[in-house]
Simulated assay, not measured.
Amino acid sequence: MSITPYRAPAQTVRCEQEIKKSRFITYLAHTQGEEDAKQFIQSIRETYPDARHHCWAFVAGRPESSVQWGCGDDGEPAGTAGKPMLAQLSGANVGEICAVVVRYFGGVKLGTGGLVKAYGSSVQQALMMMETREIAVTVPYVLSCEYAHIDTIESLLKQYHGVQLDAEFSHNVRLTVRIDARFVADFLEALKNQTRGQAHVSPLENESTSGT
């Protein structure tokens, strides 16, 4: 598992170009996982139901995780749309990103080379407009502590780039947190020292490491 942060789209981007009377409308969006990407692709289909093609590509996880890459030509000749779109996304070193290019056919055939260039340049143009944000890899934990330790833990969460997700209060306090994977060891050591070992921490079961 890599703990290095990566970049993802900060917002949805839309751009448009016309090539030999065909209209190409490109969208880039932040999508967390394959299901989210597929839902975004479907939403664009529904937005432009009269378009001839809705070609797509996504890098659903970390930029280097090719097992979460996907693309589709949606009726264009095989390899002329989705693959050049995916090549642009994978070359940008951005994760959790989905691209959809909507094409309204203008009556002039572009040929296979022309299609590859058109779809690739459409995504390239959108990438140039896109702003990104950092996605930190985080690890979930459950903390059990005395009420007297709450301020200490909140301070440590801030110091080590952690966030509190949930809290339960009874005879003691049970906190669900996520810690930046780069600082887990330091956080756990500081927690042990500053609470004199009285705060108990354990990995959160059935929850995976993720980007936030």
Rank of each mutant, 00 (worst) to 15 (best):
M1R: 04
I3N: 13
I3S: 10
T4S: 15
Q11V: 10
Q11G: 07
T12K: 12
T12W: 00
V13N: 02
Q17A: 05
K20Q: 15
F24H: 05
T26K: 08
A29N: 15
G33N: 08
E35F: 02
A37F: 04
Q39Y: 03
F40Q: 02
T47N: 08
R52L: 14
H54L: 09
W56V: 02
A60M: 06
G61L: 07
G61Y: 06
E64Q: 14
S65A: 14
S65H: 07
C71I: 05
G72E: 05
D73Q: 11
G75Q: 05
E76D: 07
G79Y: 04
T80E: 08
T80G: 10
T80L: 10
T80W: 04
A87S: 15
A87M: 09
A87I: 02
L89F: 11
G91L: 08
V94D: 01
E96D: 14
I97Q: 07
C98A: 15
A99F: 04
A99D: 00
V100C: 14
V100P: 07
V101P: 00
Y104H: 11
T112P: 01
G114F: 01
G114Q: 06
S121R: 08
Q124V: 00
Q125I: 05
A126W: 02
L127P: 07
M128S: 15
M128H: 11
M130L: 04
L143Y: 10
L143G: 04
C145S: 05
C145W: 00
E146R: 07
E146T: 02
E146A: 13
H149D: 15
I150V: 15
S155H: 14
F169W: 11
S170D: 14
N172M: 10
V173F: 06
V173W: 01
T176V: 13
V177G: 04
R178I: 02
A185Y: 00
L188S: 07
K192T: 12
K192W: 10
R196F: 12
Q198E: 14
E207V: 15
E207K: 13
E207P: 01
S208H: 14
T209K: 10
